[in-house]
Design a protein around this nucleic acid. Structure first.
Lengths: 158, 158
DNA sequence: GTCAGACCCTTGCGTACGCAACGACGCTAG
DNA sequence: CTAGCGTCGTTGCGTACGCAAGGGTCTGAC
């Protein structure tokens, strides 16, 4: 508390402020992700994980991305993304395309249906992020969060 | 839709600062949780989810908690906790006790082995939380994070 | 040319989780 | 007492994920 640094014992527990910052991260993350997922599912039958893929593709040039880049973007393992892409392909929201330059790789491409779904779901998702996360925070907190992320994981927010 | 705050288009995307705050939350959470889990597993063969149960019990009076309270504490569904408790019981780290007051309920209780494991793993976990999360942040950022959590999810940090 | 090693995506397998349903039990009203 | 409803923990079932292994492909050294 009074100590900004730590002349504390090596195995000292966390003080109240540290604990609050840490537990808050876990609880806020869990609560918001759960709420966003539920809202997206209720409004469009689309899980958050699906939306995140569509959104990533929507932001990418030509609406397509290499599978390995996409996996990194949506915080999934490659095998995890393979199966998520399988589901999205089955639903007609994306399609795969062989990469002409590197025959090892393949692209995930947004289909027209995927684009439509993305545009509809986008409203719900943005509104949810604003309501659950951004609106309660002021400009000061937002800047402070960004600064914190940059210190903890440089480049995490791009 | 009728934007309460901003005079932006109804479907306006997030600006750079908002996006950074939001994406940072997702990425920082994923990175830290993954790192903590890997370190705990490497050092003690204990997944983070197991540790969180032991820690919660260790903080509770008499080292025991009702299953439903414990589930809420570790951010799991009741069924999820039932099976997690099964694994911990099989490993001898906790045991179940019938609740004499309410015969519907049961307690999860820390065993001696569970206490030992907790004490060993505690060092690793605290050190990880400090190194990955607390140390990069200054006192100012910590307080700001706490304030942010309190606005987003009052009481989230207790 | 070709061979070793790295990379990309997929697949087999094991595991962890949530939802819904269930039985056991507590609580309250009548 | 007992009927009705809510709560507690568990279980069946379906699903999502990661790790490790595998086949196809690229690259660079020789």
């Amino acid at each position: 508390m009074t100590t900004t640094a730590k002349p504390i014992l090596p195995d000292a527990g966390l003080d109240a402020g540290e604990l609050a910052a840490w537990r808050g991260l876990l609880r806020v993350h869990a609560a918001i992700v759960h709420a966003l997922d539920a809202e997206l599912e209720a409004a469009h039958g689309l899980p958050l994980s699906h939306y995140e893929v569509l959104m990533s593709l929507g932001e990418a040039p030509d609406g397509r991305m290499r599978m390995c880049d996409l996996a990194e973007r949506v915080l999934l393992s490659r095998s995890g993304l393979t199966r998520l892409a399988d589901r999205l392909e089955r639903d007609g929201l994306i399609c795969r395309a062989r990469c002409s330059i590197d025959a090892r790789g393949s692209f995930a491409c947004l289909t027209d249906a995927g684009q439509d779904t993305l545009e509809q779901a986008r409203q719900t998702h943005l509104e949810g992020v604003r309501r659950h996360f951004l609106e309660p925070l002021g400009q000061r907190e937002l800047e402070c969060l960004y600064a914190a992320w940059e210190r903890v994981l440089p480049g995490a927010a791009r």
